[in-house]
Design a protein around this nucleic acid. Structure first.
Length: 484
RNA sequence: GUCCCCAUUGACUAGGGGUUAGGUCACCACCCUUUCAAGGUGGCGGCGGGGGUUCAAAUCCCCCUGGGGACGCCA
């Protein structure tokens, strides 16, 4: 009996395994290497990746480089870099379509053999003319199929679109129905033998076992075309889902004029990949409770296609910055210090003095990493400049003589300290204030001005301690000259 | 010109026949406080318009308006 149970359990397990194999989610990100990974592409990649990880499926990276003129290796690398920076890893690939040409040839031949495709010899000018005419008589602008029955043996290869409608159900919206006659007999293979996007995409999605194709809105018109190819080739179609676009603040599609669109530009500006991913995930996806901050694990666990919205989202820099600030605040200072050093080397600044300690002081105050070099510039150079404005507003605030006395006394008190840390400094200052019968703030403000050259800084006791006793004394002396 | 998509505060969104229309960013105020942040508390502000259906519409249907996309030997 026991043996039977074991056998039965094993049987169920292996059946489940097979079932899982058959139904395993397979998705992909299929960019064309014609530029950097942009925010919209990154969001598309992220959603596919999240879905794959959520379902325990497979995420494939495929480079669609059939446009030889525009594709570059640098762009491919930039896309890979962008994905890696965001922490989006792939299980297969990258596949390059340019290396799969024989496969597409094979299927093109199949379409020809089965009378589902034909050669067209129309020139570009002729096609233009056809388009103009179609529009002038109020028809859909498209190829008029004049070469369908010519029996040409060369030219571009076109699909023979059947009469009827092509229907599909979108993952995020309703039913789509397209009239095949409006789709037209589109090009599958160029006259130079290079296959086109719609053809390679359809073939690869089928061959690579894609269960879901999640891509941008702009591909909606391509979907019926690919469905037609799939049908002609007798492949099972994947499920399609079209993500709404990401817009700029003026509601037009996000582009360079809205600021940075390249994902790597955000790295250069001092954003953390975790924040970027978190923000991107919220552009079109949400949970019922409107949770905002997610760890990667949490995001994977909670991700669901059902909760993707169909309306386009405006990319909001302010919220991204807020989120980045939150991630910086929570990050490990050592990790941040390493990131900051990259910025210093880029900008030619020196930042070796206890960078980690400085970061701790600024973690809760900055939105992007490089801000630390503006707000905390007085930490990074021995000399500081006290702007005239600060001199007037702070150093002569309660009377020049009084400030002079306060600073002189402060210098004396602080240089007498044997242990120089935030606590001892604070104690010394407060004691001094009490002794002189003034407010601690009356000491703190001038002290801040002479130590930092600013009216705003982290807690002055921490700042002073980090600067070190010698530097503090030196800066008070320097500041004293400015009190006049 | 033809086809198609979208519509909740300034932004991201929840809600999908009966809710004081909820959360987050931003903004404002107050608290905390050595300044600035952070944090805490509170506040401002919204269902694009018009018709239906219904006892009841942000929610369902239609029209309009607005925004966007596609119509390549680009992807």
């Amino acid at each position: 009996m026991d043996g039977f149970v074991i056998v039965e359990t094993r049987l169920i397990a292996s059946l489940l395994h097979i079932l899982q194999e058959v139904t395993m989610t397979t998705v992909r990100f299929a960019p064309s290497p014609t530029g950097y990974l942009h925010v919209g592409g990154a969001r598309t990649a992220l959603f596919n990746w999240l879905y794959a990880r959520n379902t325990g499926g497979k995420f494939i990276l495929r480079i669609e480089d059939t446009d030889v003129k525009r594709s570059t290796q640098a762009a491919t690398q930039a896309i890979l870099d962008g994905l890696m920076w965001l922490g989006i890893d792939w299980d297969e690939g990258p596949y390059f379509q340019s290396e799969r040409l024989p496969i597409y040839q094979e299927y093109a031949q199949k379409l020809i053999d089965e009378d589902n495709a034909y050669y067209c010899t129309c020139s570009v000018d002729e096609l233009d003319e056809q388009k103009k005419q179609a529009i002038s008589i109020g028809r859909a602008a498209g190829y008029d199929r004049r070469c369908r029955d010519k029996g040409a043996k060369q030219g571009v290869l076109r699909l023979k679109a059947p009469i009827g409608n092509t229907v599909f159900h979108d993952l995020f919206r309703d039913r789509f129905e397209f009239d095949n006659s409006l789709i037209g007999d589109f090009v599958l293979v160029r006259s130079d033998g290079m296959p086109t996007y719609n053809f390679t995409c359809a073939v690869d999605d089928a061959l690579m076992g894609m269960t879901h194709v999640i891509r941008g809105d702009d591909h909606i018109p391509n979907t019926p075309k690919q469905l037609l190819i799939l049908a002609a080739l007798v492949f099972n179609p994947p499920r399609f889902g079209h993500l709404p676009l990401i817009l700029g603040t003026d509601k037009s599609p996000l582009s360079k004029r809205h600021g940075a669109v390249s994902v790597m530009a955000y790295q250069e500006q001092g954003f953390l990949p975790e924040a970027m991913v978190n923000y991107l995930a919220l552009l079109g996806w949400s949970t019922t409770d409107s949770q905002q901050l997610f760890s990667k694990e949490e995001m994977i666990k909670k991700f669901s296609l059902k909760r993707i919205t169909k309306n386009p989202a405006v990319f909001d820099m302010e919220k991204l910055q807020w989120m980045n600030g939150v991630y910086i605040k929570q990050a490990n200072p050592e990790k941040l210090a390493n990131l900051c050093r990259e910025f210093t080397s880029q900008k030619g600044k020196i930042g070796d003095i206890q960078l980690e300690e400085i970061i701790k002081l600024y973690q809760g105050r900055i939105k992007v990493l490089p801000e630390i070099y503006q707000l905390g510039d007085f930490f990074f150079s021995p000399e500081i400049h006290i702007p005239e404005k600060i001199c007037q507003e702070v150093l002569s605030m309660s009377g020049v003589e009084e400030v002079r006395e306060i600073l002189t006394e402060t210098k004396k008190v602080l240089s007498a300290l044997e242990i120089f840390n935030p606590d001892t400094i604070e104690q010394a200052i407060r004691t001094m204030a009490e002794r002189l019968g003034i407010k601690a703030a009356d000491i703190i403000h001038p002290l801040r001005a002479v130590l930092t050259g600013k009216k705003v800084s982290p807690g002055i006791f921490e700042v002073a301690a980090l600067l070190g006793q010698e530097m503090v004394v030196q800066r008070i002396e320097g500041g004293l000259c400015m009190v006049r």
